[in-house]
Write a protein that binds this DNA or RNA. Structure first.
Lengths: 350, 350
DNA sequence: TTGTAAGCGTTATCAC
DNA sequence: GTGATAACGCTTACAA
């Protein structure tokens, strides 16, 4: 039904091969012949099938982007930048939301590879993702990890300095007078979860505050998880004066729990987290955050991947750590003086 | 290098065809033979090439999702739902951000089709997108339009009731005492832009307020556009007491402009818009909006498309209009009494 | 129930 | 310069 290369060849009175050469801009074709072919292409309105091209050339010009949830602004921005970078290089992007489900992740990775993607940009769901990634890597398949790193997996990795960021956040809270800082952490074993917990501990140490297991609540890092963790935190006695949430969604969930209890942020309790919620910040500059360069993760990650695909990348794998930025807004209680709880205690001692 | 169907056939002592039958779960294969094939598949660790499958069967199990900007939460949620629905049906999703650029949109649509997507879910950039869509439709290619409809294009369409939503928003402002309501509209000719403008006019009419061209500012519907439009609005004398922004990003931009001028929302000027910014609303319930069911647009749109692809959809095209919801928060000035400007005027008359 | 032959639409290889 | 031929790895159609 559709016009094929052979139709063009016939119309131009040449072989299919010559048409192919013309279309792919190879030289070694007589100018006169080239013209005839080009005319035939135009006359017939011929459009080459990329599927057939992919099969024959084994080049799909497609990469797979696998992440937890594109509706999360952090990943949405990352995805946007990744797609733009891919497009600029003539690549298409196949999208997958794993929902943090390892099985979905594994199935999608396999499917994408069989479908012929030339490489994968993966934000792994957890350490367990390595079981899906290692077999690919062993076959020499190009994979770049973003956001989360994977223990024992040797490939290109692009992450942020989670330890430093978390430490900074906690120190900032400490400077505002907070001593009882709860942490909502990742229940899964993840690089980011571990690092941010480490940063939390480092921050406490720097502040001369002891680390208490009872102040760390590990949960699924989505809104519901944050909500539940915050509920547990609010049941604590004495109640912490600040919460450090491991990511944006848990902070949103925590906020929800606080609101339900009629607690104000930052007056009753401070709340800070990783990952900015950009457009939100413009509308109401509220949440104090460690802002990860999501767009850069997407763009740079894609570029790394494309270099790996094209073979331009060296044999050694890159491991790039980007720095984060502390954005101070209201939710940490800056400008409020010491945390309320301490005020209350002071009042109590009158 | 990789194991092929023939390798399996050889190992199992059958023909390639029989292996194919087993793999695709067709019947008409002896149980004993099936077992032998399955064993061989396992032993060899055979994985079928989906690229070859696609070429031979002409089924890529892939759809294209083409929209303006996945970093916009509205589209991100739509995309998330679309991908989930596609996955459930065994389909992959190829993603494209057009950035509102018609050329990018057209090139991507063509590319996706040549690449073999079985259908397209498109949120068109503007009316002009029809030039890219009509040729596809004429070939009988499955296309479903979401968010924006296209004049003179006959295909499945899934939109929201923009007129009713905009009218509701304006009436709500009117009920709060606003009479001078500016509108930041879409500079492109778009279905949503027209409809929302129409709803704006209908709302004014219902309120017994005259329509003034000078209160309508058409701009690119992104943050910068909203920012600039708001600047123009603020230069107006008398200054409107409320702004109705055509979408979330223009509202964010408007907010930015207001903040720069040290104007508070809603005390100095009210601000409402289309599209919710979900997680944001939890953190600080600020913006009064007409909330479009983004997830349903994505899910339903994908389902429509898959039905069209499978031929289950009837010859007649669907045109579905979903209802929106008014979510009243603070930015409209509810609870503030009459708009400040009127208060000032009242004071002036003392 | 199973196999054979002929593609799917292009590119790579090696002659001419 | 150009073309014939054989892939790429599978499916469809038909034959046995």
């Amino acid at each position: 039904m559709a016009i094929t290369l052979r139709d063009v060849a016939r119309a131009a009175g040449v072989s299919a091969m010559t048409v192919s050469r013309v279309l792919n801009g190879r030289d070694g074709v007589d100018n006169e012949t080239r013209r005839r072919v080009e005319d035939a292409v135009k006359t017939l309105g011929y459009l080459p099938s990329r599927v057939a091209y992919s099969r024959a050339s084994r080049k799909t010009s497609t990469i797979g982007l696998v992440l937890r949830d594109i509706a999360n602004p952090f990943y949405a921005i990352l995805a946007h930048a990744a797609e733009a970078a891919a497009r600029k290089a003539g690549y298409r992007v196949l999208l997958c939301n794993t929902e943090g489900d390892l099985r979905v992740e594994r199935e999608y990775l396999e499917d994408f590879v069989l479908y012929g993607v030339e490489g994968l940009l993966l934000a792994p769901a957890s350490d367990e993702s390595r079981h899906s990634v290692l077999p690919l890597l062993r076959r020499g398949f190009p994979v770049v990890l973003v956001d989360n790193s994977l223990p024992g997996v040797d490939c290109d990795v692009l992450v942020t300095d989670n330890v430093a960021g978390a430490k900074r956040l906690v120190e900032h809270l400490g400077a505002l007078g907070h001593r009882d800082i709860a942490h909502i952490g990742d229940a899964e074993d993840t690089f980011t979860g571990r690092e941010r917990l480490q940063g939390y501990r480092d921050g406490l140490t720097a502040l001369g505050i002891g680390y208490h297991e009872g102040l760390v609540f590990r949960t699924v890092v989505d809104q519901l998880g944050g909500y539940r963790a915050a509920q547990q935190i609010l049941a604590l006695n004495p109640r912490p004066t600040a919460i450090f949430a491991v990511n944006n969604m848990t902070a949103v969930g925590a906020m929800q729990a606080l609101r339900e209890r009629q607690l104000s942020v930052p007056e009753d309790i401070a709340l800070v987290c990783f990952d900015d919620l950009e457009s939100l910040a413009v509308l109401s500059p509220f949440l104090t955050v460690i802002d990860q360069p999501a767009a850069m993760l997407g763009r740079l990650g894609t570029q790394l991947l494309l270099e790996r695909i094209s073979g331009k990348a060296g044999a050694r794998h890159q491991r790039i750590t980007l720095q984060t930025e502390l954005t101070v807004r209201l939710s940490c209680g800056v400008g409020l003086g010491a945390p309320k709880k301490q005020e209350l205690m002071a009042e109590g001692s009158h």
